[in-house]
């Protein structure tokens, strides 16, 4: 059990990082990675949504969809759950962390369509994970997302203080950075326990 958990952890964080290897959740990865502070906030919001969504979707999938043989409804039912959760997170953040709410802006409701969230719930089903493993995989995958976005934000903050060739300033250099980071993460592939 422990060995399995560690192997999922390493896979979700490094070898199969959701952003860098599977290329899920690129929109917030590029959109909210200008400052480390907001990137951490975004990572936390996504982690919350992905962890809770993994649990809820497992429950819905196991007790409703599979029982009635309705696996074909997975995508639509999962999106419904994710949308509801994101709406809830938005209300919560607006009420208790207004500064973070303003900083995340449009990217907060966009977690709904963040394919990392839908991806993790569908992968849970594909991999046949149980309730606890689904929750753990969702959490670890979200931590992998957080790792990637915070690293990216750190590099972009650093880039802001350096002189970049004029035509590469802003998004072009960010995209090149993202590409180089993805190449770096490929170095982890094949590494497993």
């Amino acid at each position: 059990m422990i060995k399995e958990i560690i192997s999922i952890l390493i896979a979700a964080l490094l070898t199969e990082n959701f952003v860098m290897v599977k290329f899920y959740g690129i929109c917030p990865f590029l959109g909210v990675s200008k400052k480390v502070e907001t990137a951490v906030g975004m990572g936390m919001a996504v982690t919350f949504v992905m962890a809770i969504a993994s649990m809820f979707t497992w429950l819905v999938n196991h007790f409703l969809l599979e029982r009635f043989g309705l696996e074909y409804l997975q995508t639509i039912a999962f999106i419904l759950i994710i949308a509801g959760l994101v709406q809830f997170v938005e209300m919560f953040v607006k009420k208790s962390l207004p500064a973070l709410y303003n900083a995340l802006g449009i990217y907060l409701p966009l977690i709904t369509t963040n394919c990392a969230v839908l991806g993790v719930t569908l992968l849970n089903v594909q991999n046949g994970y149980g309730f606890i493993m689904s929750f753990l995989y969702g959490t670890f995958a979200a931590l992998g997302f957080t790792l990637a976005i915070v690293l990216m934000a750190g590099i972009r903050e650093f880039l802001d203080e350096n002189s970049v060739v004029r035509s590469f300033r802003g998004f072009p250099i960010a995209l090149i950075t993202a590409g180089l980071m993805a190449v770096a993460f490929m170095g982890f592939s094949g590494f497993s326990i």
Binding site: L64, F68, L70, L73, I81, G84, K94, K95, S96, P98
Partner: peptide, 26 residues
Amino acid sequence: IPVLIVGGLGLLFGLLLAFASYIFAV
């Protein structure tokens, strides 16, 4: 059955959100 399940889920989340919006009203 699918209509009831998806509709029921939607209704459930709708009610929960309505309740949450009351608690977390800004």
